[in-house]
């Protein structure tokens, strides 16, 4: 392989890490907040698809992608709230209800989004950071969507918030030891419901990124399981928001492998290359999990890693 080909591939992967990784970032931050409170929401996959559909629909109807984005966040908030409320009932399993929400969200999005497959909705704007570079490959790699910097800011904010603010500490306490939180007078169920709702809003934004930025249209095959992989990604990031940022970039690069290889003319076996994020997720989980032993940083009340 010549040097030019390798550099095209590398630039493609770097650009792809940001482009493909941004939805992972939002969904994993959402899952991180939810899991910090001691609950797992596998329904983020359904919320993501619903967010993608409603964001695209509202952007098309209103003509403003930002209204679409807001609508996707609100939709995610509502669905997260639903998960939070239902799972606060006795005997309701959060993992099982998450699967239910995943099926319901996908079904609803396919149903309601039928009419929006054809029309083209206005897209969120991109910032070209690389306009001073001559190389067009770098320029397209550095044409970054407005949501990515917002995501980076949010992960910094969360890192600080979880570590040094009162609500952040309350959330971590509720997730780590329910009994202590109760003894200190924190409303455990309420904190969890809020955390799940906020997490849902993040996932909704992640979905809107898919339909309003990249790939940038609404179709039924839009999501390829990002919502589920985000759950694994949070485990890999050990429930740290900055870890989520790094992991999302890694996953983005893996996800960009298929398109990058195609751009240099390797197209055979693209189904396998496109499956690279799944293989990476599985490999990371195999490497980072231990049987009958919890990882450092695991919220103590989490049913996922018990």
């Amino acid at each position: 392989m010549s040097e030019a080909v390798v550099s095209t591939l590398a630039i493609g992967m770097i650009g792809g890490a940001i482009r493909v990784g941004t939805p992972y970032l939002f969904v994993s931050l959402g899952e991180c907040i939810t899991e910090k409170g001691g609950r797992v929401n596998l329904g983020l996959e359904g919320i993501l698809v619903m967010g993608a559909m409603s964001g695209y629909a509202l952007s098309y109807l209103s003509g403003s992608p930002w209204i679409g984005l807001l609508c996707a966040a609100a939709m995610g908030l509502c669905m997260g709230l639903l998960h939070g409320l239902i799972c606060s009932l006795p005997r309701v399993n959060d993992i099982a209800f998450g699967i239910g929400l995943m099926l319901l969200g996908t079904g609803l999005a396919f149903f309601l989004g039928k009419g929006f497959i054809q029309p083209q909705a206005p897209q969120l704007p991109a910032l070209s950071l690389g306009s001073f570079i001559a190389d067009p490959r770098w320029r397209s790699a550095l044409s970054i969507n407005a949501l990515f910097p917002i995501g980076v800011l949010l992960s910094l904010l969360l890192h600080w918030g979880l570590r040094s603010t009162r609500p952040g500490l309350a959330l971590r306490l509720v997730g780590d030891h329910e009994g202590t939180a109760r003894a200190l007078g924190y409303p455990v169920a309420t904190v969890r419901i809020i955390a799940t709702a906020v997490g849902g809003a993040f996932a909704g934004v992640g979905g809107a990124y898919l339909s309003l930025c990249y790939p940038g249209s609404w179709s039924e095959g839009l999501s390829s399981g990002q919502g589920i992989m985000a759950v694994a990604l949070v485990i890999f990031a050990r429930w740290r928001p900055l870890g989520c940022l790094a992991a999302a970039m890694l996953f983005g690069a893996a996800g960009a492998l298929g398109p990058a290889l195609q751009s240099i003319g390797i197209s055979s076996g693209y189904h396998l290359f496109n499956a690279a994020p799944y293989a990476l997720t599985l490999a990371i989980m195999i490497a980072s999990c231990r049987p009958r032993q919890t990882l450092g940083g695991t919220p103590g009340e989490l049913s996922l890693t018990r």
């Binding site: 596998l42 993992i95 699967i99 390829s224 399981g225 589920i228 992989m229 759950v231 694994a232 485990i235 499956a275 799944y278 293989a279 997720t281 599985l282 989980m285 195999i286 999990c289 231990r290 049987p291 009958r292 032993q293 996922l304 890693t305």
Partner: peptide, 17 residues
């Protein structure tokens, strides 16, 4: 059983693969 990987996520990832 051997690595402590959550089976819900693991089986779905294997399904995608």
């Amino acid at each position: 059983q051997w690595r402590g990987v959550n089976e819900t996520i693991g089986s779905l990832l294997l399904s995608y693969l």
